[in-house]
């Protein structure tokens, strides 16, 4: 069965920090949203939780590119995560969840599981 999803407004363009990340709270928990104005697309979203420490910190990492791929480095133990796929460059077995993110006018929309609809269906 295909998971039901929904798009929610999580913040506005003014909340974003160019070349860096911010954290938002969603029904799936904390998500990190990155704004890399020199790329296309310019928005990326991955889980805010650092899989190596368990702490919610990935939005506070340094962004950049390695081999042309957009990345963020965990501020705690410095592992790199691909912002498009969530793959950890240092450990193939580790991957963080990625989310679809869109710019609609001034609003930033994020796609998460539709927990409300899932609850109704159950």
């Amino acid at each position: 069965m295909r998971t039901r999803t929904c798009w929610n407004t999580v913040c506005t363009v003014d909340d974003l920090v160019p070349e860096s990340g911010i954290a938002v709270w969603t029904n799936e928990g904390p998500v990190a949203v990155f704004y890399l104005p020199h790329r296309l697309p310019a928005l990326f979203a991955i889980s805010h939780a650092d899989p190596f420490s368990g702490a919610n910190v990935l939005a506070r990492g340094i962004t950049g590119d390695l081999g042309g791929e957009p990345i963020v480095a965990s501020p705690l133990y410095k592992q790199h995560f691909n912002l498009k796929t969530g793959a950890c460059l240092e450990d193939e077995s580790v991957r963080v969840k990625t989310y679809s993110v869109l710019l609609d006018g001034n609003r930033i929309l994020l796609e998460t599981r539709d927990t409300h609809q899932e609850a109704v269906a159950a």
Partner: peptide, 22 residues
């Protein structure tokens, strides 16, 4: 400053030392 923020390690960005639980 806007240009300098994304250059900093988190400790410099938030001007404090991050500990293991964030």
């Amino acid at each position: 400053t806007t240009d300098n923020v994304p250059l900093q390690d988190t400790n410099d960005t938030f001007m404090a030392n991050m500990q293991k639980n964030g």
